[in-house]
Structure formats: C-alpha cells, structure tokens
Design a protein around this nucleic acid. Structure first.
Lengths: 207, 207
DNA sequence: AAAAACTATGTGACAGTGTCACTTACATAG
DNA sequence: CTATGTAAGTGACACTGTCACATAGTTTTT
C-alpha cells in the first residue's frame, strides 16, 4: 500500500482544488452527493456508518495518500453517500471533480492504479469490519482493538470507543472496567491507558 | 446496473477461458489465490464470509453479467480470498487471466467501466450488510429479509436461512416459529412459505 | 420392509449484549 | 462558587447466541 511513491501523487494534486478542514469537521454525511474524488494530503478522515436505529461503527480511516471508496463509489454509481466522514486532525486534501476524475481514469494508467489500489484496500477493511461484527463477544473485540493500539494513552471517551466497535457506551464502560480490574489498562475521564497490550491480545484471541 | 448491454460483454467472453460449475460447487475459499477475473454468464455465485469462530454471513450474489469484487480485490492486491464462493444453479463463467485483466483494464475504457461498476455495486452491498449487522434484533432482520422475497415458497433449510443473516440456526428456528404462529408464513422441513410479506415488512420496519 | 444412518429441527437453560432510565462525577464558564 | 453541560456508572430486563440433547423426517442398507 505505502509503496505508492508520494511523488506520483503530487501530479494529481495540481489537477484539483485544495480543500481544508479543521479537526472534527464533517466532510460528508448520508444523502450527500459524491461531487469530487478526494485524495488526502495530511490528517485523516474517519469514515463511519450509522444504521437507521442510530447505532454507529467506524468503517476505516483514510490516511495521507489514500482515497476514499465511499466517495469513489458515489462518483461511479451516482448514488448519495451512505456514511459519514469526519476530519481527524487538520485535514488537507485535493478534490478532483467528477468529470476530471473520469477522464483521468480513462487516460492515465497510473491514476487508475491509484484508484484501484485504494478500492482494494478499503474493500479489505470492510470485510474485516464484517468479520468483526460477526463476533458477538464484545469483550474479545474490545481487547483486540486495544491490543492493536499498543502500549500508551488513548484520549477518547467511552462513547467514541463504543462507536469504533459498533457497540453501546454502557457495554464499553463495563468491559473497560473489567480490564482495569485485571490491571491491563488504567482508565479515567476521557482517556484509556493501555498497560498490558500482550495480555489484552491473548485474552482477545482466547478460544 | 442492468443497463449494461449484455452484447458488450460478449466481446470479453472471447478473451478468457470458459468455466463451468455445477450447483453447489465451491468456486473459491479463504486462502485461495485470485488467479483470474470472473464474469458470470449464467447462474449465480453466492459469496459468503465466515469468521474465525465459524459464524457465516452471505455478503452478496454475483448474477449473470456481474463480476465479483472479492476476486478483483484479490487480483489487484495479490492477497488471497477472504471468503467463500458457491455456485447457485449451474454456473457458466469466463475466466480472464490476471495479465489479460490488467492489460484490458489499462487499454479498454469500456472494460474499465464494467469493472468499476461492479466494484461500486458490491461495495454498496457490503455496506448494506454492515448496516444490517449493526441491528441486533434478529426478528426484525429476518422479517425484512423474508418480506424482500415476496409471496411464495422458499426451498431452504433453517441453517441456510440463518447464514443469510449471519445468525444461528436455533435463533432462525425460534423466530420463524413465532412468525408462523402469527400466520405470516408456513414452515415445513426444508422450506418456508411466505404468506403475508406486507405484514413481515411492517413488522421489520416497526420502531 | 425394517433397521441403520443421515440430516433437519425443536427445546430448555444460561451467559452475555444492548437498552432504559437514572444517578453520580468532572469540568469550565460565568 | 454555582450552574450547566458532558462523561461515566448502575441495576433491571428482554433478547441473542450457545450448548447439549431430544425428535422427527429421509435415504441407504441389508
């Protein structure tokens, strides 16, 4: 994925309009039309899906150099977005209009490759989310999620953590508490300190 | 989707090798390498995902004229398949080798469009599955699923029905029973007869 | 045709999730 | 220092997913 030389991207940055968004800004929401193809230059975009009942799950993050499948899907199918996109950190991106997108896609093989690679990577992440949602043991899912972050402090609320996994705040709360009792993490208002990622990893993958 | 003239496809049928599979055959399984791009000519391919615990959900079906994202993703990323593909009905398909796929993609805009359209459609289906899995009320999900089929008899076991939704056989069993008590369906070994799709629809979308 | 061997279903118990309706703690703007 | 809003904890409870079997249709074998 990251073997895409960032220099190559520079050529496309010139093809579109610069776009900036502050931390936390909403870049798109369900119902919006996909108007432009987005390539992220800095910061990240957190893409979430919320179902009719209001339950939310994080699908993936679009980091610098990546593009967003949902956006591409919307451009290609003409359907509106089905999820939300929020800026994480100050985001700078390049927006390439639908028309230019289509002509680049038809003429530039390298651009095509860029788009496809992004597509393939995201589809993989979507199937990972499905895999994870099929597992109903939230404690195992949370343990694995925390283990993946590795040792260190996470500044996020229980609510945000719950949304990463597509579960409820109360459940995240209870589960974190049980992990703290075991000494694997230390929690306080608005933050979780991961102390023993290995223990969490082992717990998350236990039979 | 179906506005893709099937005549256009005929041109690509000549580019690859014919492939046939009987009803129920397994076309690919997790770990297999994506060796060729597949376009389905007749029959359908049911694509499923099974997580480590063995719980399975149907991701989507690839019908005549469609291609499979998982396959495309594998070809493009070089990673093995993450799901299963089974023939539903006698399947005939055309397999286009990875090399020819890449050269067609680079040279033929219409082929590109075909691939992209397939991609966009499947991604939409994947996000639908995620949407559905976020809803934990299995009775509502099952009601909606049945309502979508419309009136008529379905020849499938509880186990198969459960896998469509990514739930357990016992749960599907119980829930079907409760629908039968309400007179919405009639069940027997290996089949479900949908009597009142409207009632199921209403129940499935109730607050 | 009767027995054996499958395959599909039904059941009751139980742990664990998700939801509700509040309560309790922090944090910060006046 | 109080008010006001945001974050987190709680106990009760319905519902799912799982287990361990009990049953009941189907096919194969003798």
């Amino acid at each position: 994925m990251s073997d895409a030389p960032t220099q190559d991207l520079a050529a496309y940055f010139a093809q579109g309009d610069a776009l900036e968004a502050p931390d936390g800004a909403c870049l798109f929401r369900p119902g919006d039309e996909g108007r432009a193809f987005l390539i992220v230059k800095s910061g990240a975009v957190r893409v979430e899906q919320t179902n009719s009942a209001g339950r939310t799950v994080v699908l993936y993050r679009v980091e610098a150099g990546d593009s967003c499948v949902l956006t591409t899907t919307c451009l290609l199918s003409g359907k509106p977005y089905s999820g939300y996109g929020y800026a994480e950190g100050a985001v700078t991106a390049v927006a390439i209009s639908a028309n230019r997108f289509k002509s680049l896609l038809a003429s530039d093989n390298q651009f095509q490759e860029l788009v496809f690679r992004g597509f393939a990577a995201r589809v993989g992440e979507l199937t990972d989310v499905i895999d994870d949602l099929l597992e109903h043991r939230t404690d195992l899912r949370l343990a694995r999620w925390l283990a993946r972050r590795g040792k260190g402090q996470l500044r996020m609320t229980r609510q945000e953590l719950a949304q990463e996994l597509g579960t409820a705040r109360e459940v995240a709360s209870r589960t974190l508490k049980s992990f703290e009792r075991r000494g694997w993490i230390s929690i306080s208002r608005g933050s979780v300190d991961i102390l023993k990622p290995d223990a969490l990893e082992a717990y998350g993958n236990a039979l």
